[in-house]
Design a protein around this nucleic acid. Structure first.
Lengths: 344, 344
DNA sequence: ATCCTCCGTGTAATCGATTCCACGAGGAGG
DNA sequence: CCTCCTCGTGGAATCGATTACACGGAGGAT
């Protein structure tokens, strides 16, 4: 593979001049510029990014460590992150933690070893040693979706509180009173927050959230299935189940169907994180949609701001409720204002 | 960030010795080894992968360029690729081409600039300049899922011919005679092959595949919707529609529902590529499942074989039919042997 | 005519590793 | 006791770029 030396030889100039042409440095003659361009063309030369990175101490690469690529929410997030990064001249290396702290650490160290310019993380847990180290070491960093309390890193996320209130209003309007939740891991902020928001919203209607109605999941379909089976085995099963992510909702759907029961007739179902497939499930699932694309873009912008010496502050965007048919039809007037139906 | 020089100073040894310890070179004394290890520990030193790559001319990184990350099939492929690569000591950088040749080229050049050790591609088209260049330039390369005829690169893919025959047998057994297909882009091998296999299988039953029953899609949901609408507008609409990928099947489902029609009562539907959601759609969708995990693993192994100087041959794995309810219930005996029902 | 500036270019140091080669110490063999 | 190996170690070249500094020539000001 041709190197800058070959180009210099071919153009009859020094490597310094070639480098200057390549980087658009002003003090180069028209003639030199032409000869270099021609030589580059002839040799099919492409600068070695590795060498360049070593010298300039920047890789123009961002690391993105997410909890689970197979989760469509994160896939979409990853996609929008890559898009925005590309627009700003950066590449992205994705690390999939599969909800495992050890894997998350593996990816963080690998990325740091490669000297990425900045790190975008949706932490799987409360803070693995590798990640805290990275934050400490001063690597530009931004949390997205989930974060770690007490770590001084900007957070780009969406606030589901209002949407959860809308959801509870919706369920309450339909007549449901015994509401349960399939929670995410307590080690994640989203895992805890969604339960809190749900409990708070229930409180506004004078409803309690008994321990038996809080099932512990791990954001994977299997746990949704298991927890839902537990709910159905109760002497007094809930009338509605709220899954804290889309995969657990899928598992819940499985469990209900396996019992020969029907959604929403026998039990209502709603999920956090809207995905294209929810329109096509039987029945279409009512969900809380995050502005995923905007989240990804905002996260990249915040990170690049940090990298390039600007401030890069936290961002919180609102989520919204998308009503479909999995909770039943409202008997009384429609739920409060920000609610929208996905099909008119 | 501490460099090898700092470690050498801290340990009171030369950088050469430190490097030897780091790389497990045999001729280093126990004492030196201990001192280096201690110094590394004290400084929290991690070798700079960029510098190492420049010197050794290898990055221990694989590039994976896929057509569409949002397609669950490719997400799963990407995941299994990363898993196997990690097991073999490689990292993976994913490039998402979004079915756009220009984006595909962008990623290929970026990856080559970063001097990845090998490239895994599922080409979007018949061969963009950048990709053909890479193949020519001798970069170790392997095609996965899709490939480009005439380019001398191993191909890891699955053969759907037998499964398509099973599908046609299944449809025929139910009583469907007017069968249509939503094809993928003609520029892709999978786009063409699936139509060919379908036509061939129809032939075995004495059925023709009229042009009006071949709709041109692009592997995206919107095209599935558009093509299906066209089918429904025909004077004699097909009784069954076979979508050449899962996203177009989703679009077809949309279109059918928008007309107030029902699957499978009004029209049968089947898809290539099985995904977890097909179990939960209304109705569950009959699909041809590829051994995605195995495909990813085989592709990585073939590529690493090439990189490390071994042969690395092509691999073809069989796909299989998964019968669900979207084609209706068979009136007569069950379809041929390799067919399985997803729910007993 | 002399001096100063500015411009275009080249030489060489540098980034952080790996690795070839040389060198000194110590042990084995004659 | 001398020679020859082997072993552990360090010095220095190297990978492919960027960039500080030096230098020569042209042109303007005095």
């Amino acid at each position: 593979m041709a190197s800058i030396k070959d180009v210099a030889a071919e153009a009859g100039l020094s490597v310094a001049t070639v480098s200057r042409v390549l980087n658009g440095h002003p003090s180069v003659s028209q003639d030199a510029r032409r000869r270099v361009t021609a030589a580059v063309e002839r040799l099919g030369y492409r600068p070695n990014a590795v060498a360049r990175s070593l010298r300039t101490d920047q890789t123009r690469t961002l690391g993105l460590v997410i909890s689970d690529v197979m989760n469509p929410y994160f896939t979409e997030l990853a996609r929008s992150v890559e898009e925005e990064a590309r627009a700003l001249g950066y590449s992205v290396i994705i690390g999939n933690a599969d909800e495992r702290p050890d894997l998350q650490d593996h990816h963080v160290t690998t990325l740091l070893d490669r000297r990425i310019d900045g790190l975008l993380v949706s932490p799987t847990d409360g803070g693995s040693p590798g990640m805290l180290g990275a934050a400490q070491a001063g690597t530009p960093m931004v949390f997205v979706d989930r974060w770690i309390p007490g770590v001084d890193v900007p957070v780009v996320r969406s606030d589901g509180r209002a949407a959860v209130r809308d959801l509870v209003a919706h369920l309450h309007g339909i007549g449901h009173r015994r509401l349960a939740i399939i929670a995410g891991p307590a080690a994640t902020t989203t895992g805890r927050e969604r339960v809190d928001a749900f409990r708070e919203a229930l409180g506004a209607y004078g409803l309690a959230l008994p321990d038996a109605y809080v099932g512990q999941g791990d954001f994977q379909a299997a746990s949704g299935r298991r927890v839902t089976e537990g709910f159905l085995d109760l002497a007094e099963p809930p009338e509605a189940v709220f899954a804290a992510d889309n995969l657990m909702a899928l598992g819940a759907l499985d469990a209900v169907r396996a019992r020969g029961l029907r959604v929403p007739d026998d039990i209502a179902l709603a999920a956090f994180d809207d995905i294209p497939w929810f329109v096509h499930t039987d029945p279409p699932v009512t969900a809380i949609a995050q502005p995923t694309r905007e989240l990804g873009r905002a996260a990249v912008r915040a990170l690049v701001d940090r990298i390039e010496g600007r401030t890069g502050a936290s961002v919180t965007l609102p989520a919204r409720l998308v009503v479909r048919r999995s909770c039943g039809e409202p008997a009384s007037p429609e739920p409060p204002s920000p609610v929208r139906r996905s099909t008119p």
